[in-house]
Simulated assay, not measured.
Amino acid sequence: MIVTPDHGMPPLEPALEPTPVPPGPGELRRILPGLAWARMPLPFPPRHVNLWLIDDGEGVLAVDAGARTEDSVPLWTRILDEGLAGRPLTRLLVTHFHPDHVGFAGWLCERHDVPLLMPRTEYLMARFLSLDTDEGMTARQLAFAAAAGCPPAHLDFLAGRGPLYARAVTALPRCYRRIAQGDVLTIGGRAWHVHTGGGHAPEMAALHCPELGVLISADQILPRITPYVGVGAAEPLADPLEDFLASNERLRALPAETLVLPSHGEPFTGLHARIDALAAHHAERLETLAAGLAAPLTTFEAARILFPRVTEDRQIGFAVGETLAHLNRLVESGRAERIGDEVPRYRRRARAEGEAAEP
């Protein structure tokens, strides 16, 4: 149990309509009493990330920090000086280790002398990747791509890119406060329950406030796009799709009418319907991929089935990672088999006589 004091300060006024238009860069939109919405631009798709600011006693707790970009300082300065009318940050809660969420956290924590709250795995991932800058990191990335059967041109792209993560984040504090599944944070006199989920990130935090009927879903549940669920070079045999689907099913315990505040896109209701849609999407992807594995394929070749129009090098990496997540799920569920070691290939497994079909 994590409990923090509430100083009884009034929420920022005035409150806006429940579903406001998205705020511009550096602006705030009040969506509920004690809860505001900010949006930061990204130099890569999906071009923005949502931040959530919750009244927290004398100041405001921020959920996520945005990316490290040239605009980060002026935009955050505008939020703090104009949007919050000089009210201070009290705490920074980062949902997961991806650069568009944690990228500017170090600067904010240092400049405003506030504690960083993160799930342990997410904090350690961010610290590790920000320090993993030697030649061995690039060599592992190249070995992973080569084992996937990627063409030489893509390997050259990876070799030239180098340690991308370290350049995308500011230095994280060496000290943080852990949040974990089942914790309850008191923010502005209200209880916010921590729900952690996997798949997109290993221990991503979402926050549910029963009193407000709100779920800050991070990247676990998005309204229109499907969160990236992929396998990385450090754990090539991982099964993140199983983690993702199981995590979503646990969120089904929340009320169907919950207002979902995602990291990308706009707030929405219909949590259970969206969980169903995400499950159906991945079920269709698995069926499509399994149908294409009549002959053995490398991961890169299989990616052409799921992502036939992807040709840009940065997107090839995502396509390969997500395809491998689906291949590993097929292998783990007994629907496909992995053949070979150096450049594995995958083929559909023939169903044994009398074996029931996959539901």
Rank of each mutant, 00 (worst) to 15 (best):
M1A: 15
R224D: 15
L61H: 04
V320N: 08
Q315K: 14
G199K: 06
E135V: 10
A218Q: 10
E355C: 12
R347A: 02
P14L: 01
I216Y: 02
D219Y: 02
A205C: 05
P43F: 06
G103H: 02
R111A: 12
F244M: 11
A295Y: 12
L271K: 02
A357G: 04
T311E: 14
F307C: 02
A290G: 11
H193W: 11
L93N: 00
H96L: 10
G103N: 08
T258Q: 03
H195R: 13
W192K: 06
V169C: 10
L131S: 09
G188K: 07
L51A: 05
G230R: 03
A238V: 06
A148Y: 00
M1K: 13
H195Q: 08
V3R: 13
I275V: 09
F300L: 02
F97Q: 06
L51F: 06
E312G: 14
P267T: 05
G270H: 08
H282A: 08
L51W: 00
F157M: 10
L286V: 09
F144H: 06
D55H: 11
L155K: 05
F268Y: 13
A148V: 01
R349M: 08
E242Y: 14
H112M: 06
T170C: 13
A303N: 03
R285A: 03
R29V: 08
E27M: 00
L259P: 01
T196F: 04
A166H: 07
G57E: 04
F244S: 04
R177Q: 12
P119A: 12
